[in-house]
Amino acid sequence: MKKEKKMKLSLPEEELMNSGHLACQGCGATLAMRYVLKALGQKVALCIPACCWSVIDGPFPYSSLDVPIFHCAFETAAVSASGVKAGLEMVGDTETTVVAWAGDGGTFDIGIQALSGVAERNDDIIYVCYDNEAYMNTGIQRSSATPYGAWTTTTPVKHFKDRPKKDMEAIMAAHRIPYIATASIGYPEDLFRKTKKAKEIKGTRFLHIYAPCPTGWKSRPEDTIKLARMVVQNATFPLYEIEWGEKYTLNIKLKEKKPIADYLKIQGRFRHLTEKEIASMQEEVDKKWQRLLSLVNSK
């Protein structure tokens, strides 16, 4: 008789996120939470400001997570986490990892001041931004994380987003914090490893997770993982780490950089773009990629 071979799992089976949450179909943000909690384990306290996740978790008195949550004010995720950390330490708990868990609006826009303060002080927290590239919880309004060319309800097709996505990694690197990483829910093992690594570091750690949103991007729920892989393979959202604001490491090297057109084509938010516009966006991606490679190689 043939010996049964069990598939080797690349992530732990244990779940800290339960079914019954309120996310849309194909939500990238839920996968981000699931993977991050798998890496951090149960000794965690989350600070969640206004964002999709303040709804996804479930209404009072329910919660879909097996870790405690402080639902905090929109612009305060980072510093609420600093407060929780300081408070826990003063009552004798030095072990719990305190995590600020915010969307792109709460990070790139309204929360950037408090985040900058936390990073400058190097407060001992992990800050996770799950990035779905617009204010999705309020119904798809542009944020400063919305990419050039995208439709949102406040950047209508006739006047689509005409400025590039804010370079959050560069801003965080300028704070000289110990650890910054980009990750994508399309690369769970990479995300898992980075979260584990972040957990072991003391000080401010910043994880930026790419999390597709079928509702806001007008993409098919079943394309979420595909999009989260394509965005890395076409270098729109490269996966890399920055240590102490200086040491850049590229994690997913690209033998062949894919064109962005295929990635744009399966998202309704880019449907209005002309070939000329796509060509100029491609140029921008190429330039940014070269800039990153030079940072990676300049050690």
């Binding site: 000794k43 965690v44 919660s63 997570l65 870790v67 405690p68 639902h71």
Partner: peptide, 12 residues
Amino acid sequence: ITPDEPHAFGGL
């Protein structure tokens, strides 16, 4: 707020 007894504070 403690992982020993998880609660969600101030949710929807």
